[in-house]
């Protein structure tokens, strides 16, 4: 992989073919139940992956992963757990130019707070998707142990 970390490289347009690839491969994962383009499939701005709520403890009503991928290799994976009786939990894996942080960074749960260094080193879209899905699978396991 060539170095995509030149500081002056701007974020490109949304990468529609890559979003399609990520959507079709993601629904084959056992955590993912559906994929939709938002606001629509004609001019998509994000891919929404619906996660299988049945695999979560009952307190979690809904879980989603919103994905954006750009031609510059930048991305955003936004994970959200919605609860009926408590605040939502969310976090985000981002890669985009950020004045105060490394290009690839992580906004940790429960509030997708201040950026910290990213646990994801991969650059290929599928490898990043798989790393995020593995993190979510671990998270589901942890929620059951609580």
């Amino acid at each position: 992989m060539t170095d995509r970390d030149e500081p002056e490289t701007a974020t490109g347009p949304l990468d529609e073919p890559t979003l399609r690839l990520l959507g079709t491969r993601a629904v084959e994962n056992r955590l993912v139940v559906c994929q939709t383009f938002e606001p629509d499939a004609i001019t998509p701005r994000r891919l929404r992956l619906g996660l299988d709520a049945e695999q979560y403890p009952a307190a979690v009503a809904e879980a989603t992963l919103d994905v954006r991928w750009f031609e510059s290799g930048d991305y955003s994976f936004h994970y959200r757990e919605c609860r009926d009786a408590a605040d939502d939990c969310q976090c985000r894996w981002d890669r985009h130019p950020k004045p105060s942080s490394p290009r690839a960074h992580f906004h940790p749960p429960p509030t997708a707070g201040a950026a910290e260094s990213s646990p994801v080193a991969a650059t290929h879209p599928l490898a990043v998707l798989f790393a995020v899905l593995d993190w979510i699978a671990d998270r589901v396991g942890t929620l059951h142990e609580r």
Partner: peptide
């Protein structure tokens, strides 16, 4: 893990296809 599920679900040709689609 997710990568193992992908390897299970897709043939070698399909995985090369998936990989190249993400190669800008």
């Amino acid at each position: 893990d997710a990568a193992a599920q992908w390897i299970d679900a897709r043939t070698t040709f399909q995985r090369v296809y998936d990989t190249v689609l993400g190669a800008t």
